[in-house]
């Protein structure tokens, strides 16, 4: 029994750390976009390195948690749900990392007139992801509070969709080459995609929460 207490305490800590990594990762993404738009190469690369590390850390933690949940056969009735949740959460940081590294690889030429909108889009998806991590933490500790955060995830995801749509219209209204337009649209879609991942997490959490209520 003592081993079990120790293992579950350790796991609690690891789940918290995992959620920290996801939350930090999204903030780092926003910073990265900000530096890219301001054409600050060095701090931008610094953010790419950080998000790489955070994504790696989240992956490792997820495997470790998965392993320990099975080894000690903890939370048998919620194990599947928790693993599903961690996986979808991991998708969020994966997507953020992938999008930021595309900025580095493809170096899109973003007109100054669009910079603010790109940054606003990034900020909105961060808001959405922040509420997502809060909802996930609540799922473990205070299941009744999950709903309070979920509606914010949905709200910011919709806002992100609207912003992306507005941005795309603006892109296609510019007098630039079509290939350039498509390239710019591609980045708007990808940034918005992070909020879609957050929405996936929220949907799962919604169902898991009903299952968890006594």
């Amino acid at each position: 029994m003592a081993i079990l207490f120790k293992a579950s305490k350790q796991l609690e800590y690891e789940i918290d750390e995992f959620l920290d990594a996801i939350s930090e990762g999204v903030i780092v993404f926003k910073q990265g976009v900000k530096y890219y738009l301001a054409d600050k190469k060095e701090p931008f690369l610094e953010q790419i390195k950080t998000i790489d590390e955070l994504e790696f850390k989240a992956d490792n933690l997820r495997h470790k948690i998965e392993n320990e949940l099975y080894t000690h056969s903890l939370i048998p009735e919620h194990r599947g749900d928790v693993l599903g949740l961690l996986e979808t959460l991991d998708d969020v940081i994966d997507k953020a990392k992938e999008t930021l590294s595309q900025f580095d690889v493809e170096t899109p030429d973003i007109p100054t007139s669009l910079s603010e909108m790109y940054y606003e889009l990034a900020e909105t998806i961060v808001e959405s992801c922040e509420s997502m991590t809060k909802a996930s933490r609540a799922f473990f500790k205070d299941v009744k509070a999950v709903k309070d955060h979920l509606h914010k995830v949905y709200f910011y995801e919709k806002e992100a969709d609207k912003l992306a749509d507005k941005l795309k219209r603006k892109i296609f209204g510019l007098d630039i080459h079509l290939s350039h337009k498509m390239h710019l649209r591609y980045f708007a879609t990808h940034i918005d995609g992070i909020a879609d991942r957050a929405e996936d997490v929220a949907q799962r959490l919604g169902i898991y929460t009903i299952k968890r209520s006594l």
């Binding site: 029994m1 079990l4 207490f5 579950s8 305490k9 796991l11 609690e12 789940i15 903890l74 939370i75 919620h78 928790v82 799922f139 473990f140 500790k141 205070d142 009744k144 968890r212 006594l214």
Partner: peptide, 12 residues
């Protein structure tokens, strides 16, 4: 519902 205990601690 009142004590807000962590899922894992509740499990143990």
């Amino acid at each position: 519902n009142r004590i807000q205990i962590h899922m894992l601690r509740m499990d143990t």
